[in-house]
Computed example of a mutant assay.
Amino acid sequence: MSDVVLVTGAAGLVGRAVLRRLAAAGRPAIAVDRVATTIAGVPVAPVELTEVHALHGLVRGRSLAGVIHCGAISGPMLGREKPFSLVETNIVGTANMLEIARIHGARRFIGCSSASVYGPSFGAPIDESTDLRPATVYGASKVAGEHLVAAYGREHGLAGTSLRLSWIYGPDRSTPCLLRQMIAAGLAGEALDVPFGAGYPRQYIHADDAAAALVAAFDAPALPRPAYNVTGGRIDTLDAVAAMVMAQLPGSRIRLAAGPDPLDDHHGPIDIAAARDDLGYRPATDLPDGIAGFIAALRDGR
């Protein structure tokens, strides 16, 4: 029986893209999420990250190659009113998945972290040596997850790393997304007034590029670093992003007021050279092309 890859958060934006990539390559996978569905022909089991016995049951009797751990309360805009639930899902859930990997003899563990681990930064480029100063419980939960992944490697020999993903977009995103709001308003012929964002930088990454980086890390012969920055390779202000949407949807009207996004950290340019050098990662979807695909998907009701 072929080794299987366990994908958590498989019905989410990134997990779904990972599962599709694995299926396209003919690689067997076990998929879990909070909701039952089928993606790329792979059934997704409705199991919470805290349901340890159910997770063991899914893996028992299979040869587990490793885990690509996308499951989480994802994003600083979520879980703010229930921080303990965020901690339980993101930290305890990660520990549970590491235990699954350890007990079942997996060779590799790749975790989804976030640029939120850095907290707000201004001006200077951010690389993996930049101090981690999260400003949110979400960011702190991702720092804790990174340390758990690294510690399991040191203490238990489970090879792994964490990818610090920037702001992920794509038509399958179900959590709040300003880019989706812009496109939806343009398609509906409605004006959109955003009370912030002019001059505010954001570093988007398409879900397909995030998935490519995660699978590349899973397959890398070696993982020299405990964490890697992974972005779409460019930085744009939100008003520049709005201009891209309006250029592709003539007649759309998007106005942004000055000021920061109240639910996001300000980040200077994020350096992805380490992911390029160690993992062979290069973003394939430039933002204007990604926006065009997003528009097409929403037009088709996807």
Rank of each mutant, 00 (worst) to 15 (best):
H147Y: 15
V149R: 00
V149A: 04
T136M: 03
G145S: 11
P176F: 07
A144G: 06
T175R: 13
V149W: 00
G170I: 02
V137G: 08
G145E: 04
G139A: 09
V149G: 02
H156R: 15
E155D: 14
R133C: 15
S162L: 04
V143N: 04
W167N: 07
S166M: 01
Y138R: 06
S174M: 10
T130L: 13
K142W: 07
R133Y: 08
Y138L: 12
H156G: 02
L163M: 07
A140Y: 07
V149P: 00
A140S: 14
S141P: 05
Y138T: 11
L165H: 03
T161Q: 02
H156I: 06
L165K: 00
G170P: 00
H156M: 10
G170T: 03
R164K: 04
G139N: 03
S162T: 12
L165P: 04
G157C: 05
H156Q: 13
R154D: 13
G145D: 01
E146R: 09
A150E: 13
G170W: 02
V149L: 02
E146W: 11
G160H: 06
G139T: 04
Y169E: 02
D131L: 10
A140M: 13
A151T: 15
R164W: 03
G153S: 12
V149Q: 04
Y138S: 12
P171R: 03
T130C: 15
V137D: 12
T175E: 14
G157W: 07
E155S: 12
G170E: 00
H156V: 08
S174E: 15
P171S: 13
E155P: 03
R164I: 01
E155M: 11
D172C: 06
R154L: 10
L165R: 00
P134Y: 05
G139E: 03
P134M: 10
S162I: 01
Y169F: 15
V137Q: 06
E146I: 14
L148F: 08
L132Q: 13
S162F: 04
S166Q: 03
A159M: 09
A144E: 07
V143E: 01
R154Y: 09
Y152T: 04
S174W: 01
G170F: 02
V149K: 05
S141L: 01
R173A: 08
L148G: 02
S141G: 06
E146Q: 15
S174Y: 09
G160C: 13
P171D: 10
E155F: 14
W167F: 08
T175K: 13
H156S: 09
R173Y: 02
I168A: 05
S166G: 06
V137A: 14
L158H: 03
A151L: 15
Y152I: 12
V143R: 04
E155G: 07
T136G: 07
S141K: 03
G170V: 00
